[in-house]
C-alpha cells in the first residue's frame, strides 16, 4: 500500500477508496464484478447476489452497484441524501467463519483503524419484502455512525439458503465522507487530485441529482410506467414459463436470468411510481407482493439451472 501515489489513497480520493475495497476483497478470493447494467434499488438485487445466493455451489464476489432510490432525491440540496448512490457489495457463500474479521480488515484497508475507532456490531434484522428475503446480522457502527450492513442470508427469493451466504454492504459515499472528513457529499474528492485537476463528487453527480429529482418527483411518465410495470411482469412470467426444458416438467430451467431482469425492471418501475406518489397505501402492498411473486418464481427457476442446482 505504501507504493500508492497520494491521489490514489482511500482517504484522499473516492475512486481510490473503491479501488482499495476491490483490491482487498479480490485478495480474499472474491471475483470482482462490474455493476449490473440495470437500474436497481440496492446491490442485493444484482443477480450475483440474489440468484447466486441460492443453491449449494460456493460463490464469492464483490462489486460496486449504483443504487437508485427515486424517493430519496433532494434536488442536490441535502448534504447526504441522494437518489443515486454507490453501494459496495460483498457476498461469500458459504459464509466463512472469519467473515467479521475480514470485514474489520477491509475497514483497515480503507483507512479505518479499529484501534482508534469504536467499531460496533448492532443488531439489525434484514428483510426485503420485494425480494422475499430475510437474514440476521448487524448494522456496523463506526464512532456511532452506521457504515455497513452485515447479513447472514437465511432465505432469498422465497428459497432457504443452503448453505448460508454472508453479505456485506458498504454505503460508499457515507464511509468516504467520514474518511475524507467532509460533511457534504458533493465535496468528496473524487479523483484525489488538488487544484485545477481536482474533480469532486458534485462535479460528477450534482447535476444528475437535480435532473433526476425533477424527473422522479414531477415528470416521470406515470402512464408509461404503469404500462411498463405490467409489461415487465408479463414478460417475466412469459420467460419463466418458456424456460422449462421439455415443457412443464419443472426439472431444468434455461431462462432464469432473463426472467429475473424483468423482475428487477418491475421493482425499479414500482419505485418510480411510488416516488411520483401515484400509488396509494393499499396498492403499495399489492405492488410489493407482485414483485415478490416474480422474485420467488425466478428463485425457483434459478435453483433448476446449471449454476443454481445441486451438483
Amino acid at each position: 500500500m505504501d507504493a500508492l501515489p497520494d491521489h490514489m489513497r482511500p482517504e484522499r480520493s473516492f475512486q481510490g477508496f473503491i479501488l482499495a475495497l476491490q483490491r482487498f476483497w479480490a485478495e480474499q478470493g472474491c471475483v470482482i464484478l462490474q455493476p449490473y447494467d440495470m437500474e436497481m434499488g440496492a446491490g442485493t438485487f444484482h443477480p450475483a447476489t440474489t440468484l447466486r445466493a441460492l443453491g449449494p455451489k460456493p460463490w464469492n464476489a464483490a462489486y460496486v452497484q449504483p443504487s437508485r432510490r427515486p424517493k430519496d432525491g433532494r434536488y442536490g440540496e441535502n448534504p447526504n441524501r441522494l437518489q443515486h448512490y454507490y453501494q459496495f457489495q460483498v457476498i461469500m457463500k458459504p459464509s466463512p467463519p472469519n467473515l467479521q474479521e475480514l470485514y474489520l480488515k477491509s475497514l483497515a484497508a480503507i483507512g479505518i483503524d479499529a484501534a482508534v475507532h469504536d467499531i460496533r456490531f448492532v443488531e439489525d434484522d434484514w428483510e426485503s419484502p420485494t425480494l422475499g428475503a430475510w437474514g440476521l446480522g448487524w448494522e456496523c457502527w463506526c464512532d456511532g455512525m452506521e457504515v455497513s450492513q452485515f447479513t447472514y442470508f437465511q432465505q432469498v427469493a422465497g428459497v432457504e439458503c443452503a448453505p448460508v451466504a454472508g453479505e456485506l454492504t458498504y454505503g460508499l459515499e457515507r464511509l468516504a465522507m467520514y474518511v475524507q472528513g467532509v460533511d457534504r457529499v458533493y465535496d468528496l474528492n473524487f479523483n484525489g487530485r488538488e487544484g485545477a485537476e481536482k474533480v469532486t463528487y458534485g462535479d460528477v453527480f450534482l447535476q444528475a441529482e437535480q435532473e433526476y429529482s425533477r424527473h422522479n418527483f414531477e415528470y416521470a411518465d406515470t402512464a408509461m410506467l404503469f404500462e411498463q410495470f405490467k409489461m415487465a411482469e408479463a414478460a417475466c412470467r412469459k420467460y419463466l414459463a418458456a424456460g422449462w426444458r421439455d415443457g412443464s416438467n419443472m426439472k431444468e430451467h434455461l431462462m432464469a436470468l432473463p426472467a429475473y431482469d424483468q423482475c428487477i425492471k418491475a421493482s425499479h418501475v414500482f419505485n418510480l411510481l411510488d416516488a411520483r406518489g401515484v400509488i396509494s397505501v393499499t396498492e403499495r402492498q399489492s405492488y410489493i407482493g407482485r414483485v415478490r411473486d416474480l422474485a420467488k418464481a425466478c428463485g425457483e427457476a434459478w435453483i433448476h439451472t446449471e449454476t443454481g442446482r445441486a451438483v
Partner: peptide
C-alpha cells in the same frame, strides 16, 4: 427469539441454529 444458520454446515438440514454464529 430468532435464530439463524451459518457457514458450510448450513448446506445440510438439521445444522445448528444460534442467535448469531457460535464459535
Amino acid at each position: 427469539p430468532k435464530s439463524m444458520r451459518w457457514g458450510a454446515r448450513s448446506a445440510k438440514s438439521g445444522s445448528l441454529t444460534w442467535v448469531r454464529p457460535l464459535h
